[in-house]
């Protein structure tokens, strides 16, 4: 199982900010969320695995933390 964290608008779309489910890689995480919450497809986001930014599909192992982050808007 992996721990999926959602932030900003993405958490709002999914109705919660945290999911735990089985996924072999980050593409599988995104595919599942986009299937369950089609509105997710409209928005771009960055991905981090265990708090490290990733680009491209990344393999996941038990207990990994995957964060889906829309563009930052602090300050």
């Amino acid at each position: 199982m992996v721990n999926v964290l959602l932030f900003g608008r993405l958490a709002e779309i999914c109705g919660q900010n945290n999911f735990v489910f089985e996924a072999k890689d980050t593409d599988a995480v995104c595919d599942k969320l986009k299937t369950d919450f089609p509105e997710m497809k409209q928005f771009s986001f960055a991905l981090a695995v265990n708090q490290i930014m990733i680009t491209g599909n990344t393999k996941l192992k038990e207990g990994d933390e995957v964060a889906l982050m829309p563009p930052y808007s602090g300050g």
Partner: peptide, 27 residues
């Protein structure tokens, strides 16, 4: 300030008079 705005994992949601909310655009 420039780097904080661009790189730090923070999100702002604007609250309007009516109670509606709008996700703040990066800027």
């Amino acid at each position: 300030v420039e780097r904080i705005k661009k790189e730090v994992q923070v999100w702002g949601k604007e609250i309007l008079e009516s109670g509606e909310t709008v996700w703040k655009q990066p800027g």
